[in-house]
């Protein structure tokens, strides 16, 4: 079952989100998937229990414009994704600097595919 998403470019994001807000959509959340050499960012919006999804694909190491100036609620989730995937957001109103959830000891960006295998290897070493 496919998820119907509207694919847009990174530069269109701010304008697209602002137009959704203008017609009464509220921000639900943002999902991020590691595709190997790029990330899929899926923005979920909701209006009267009808959902609409925007998808942008960014290369690793790219920055994404933050939508926390449009929806304040996006603040937490953007910080979370910064922790987990290492994607930098431009113009985040409150930046925890990648330590929203994680302490110094934990390796960086645990949700990226390369690093997911590491804890297993470390466990076997114990």
């Amino acid at each position: 079952m496919a998820l119907e998403t509207k694919n847009i470019a990174k530069t269109q994001l701010q304008a697209e989100v602002a137009s959704l807000k203008a017609v009464g959509y509220r921000f639900v959340t943002l999902s991020c998937v590691d595709l190997g050499d790029s990330f899929d960012l899926i923005y979920h919006f909701d209006r009267e229990l009808q959902m609409t999804h925007l998808r942008i694909t960014v290369l690793k190491g790219d920055t994404v414009p933050s939508i926390s100036n449009i929806y304040f609620a996006a603040l937490c989730i953007e910080n979370e994704i910064k922790d987990f995937f290492g994607i930098s957001f431009d113009g985040l109103i409150l930046d925890f600097g990648g330590h929203f959830y994680l302490e110094e000891e934990v390796k960086r960006y645990p949700f990226c595919k390369v690093s997911v295998k590491e804890p297993q290897a470390a466990k076997e070493g114990n």
Partner: peptide
Amino acid sequence: LYYVKGNGSKFLERVRIRTPTFANVP
């Protein structure tokens, strides 16, 4: 909200959980 992505193996590619309290923090 659950976002689930499968990649054709018995392990799922990604499970993303957006829980209500997360939305209620702002």
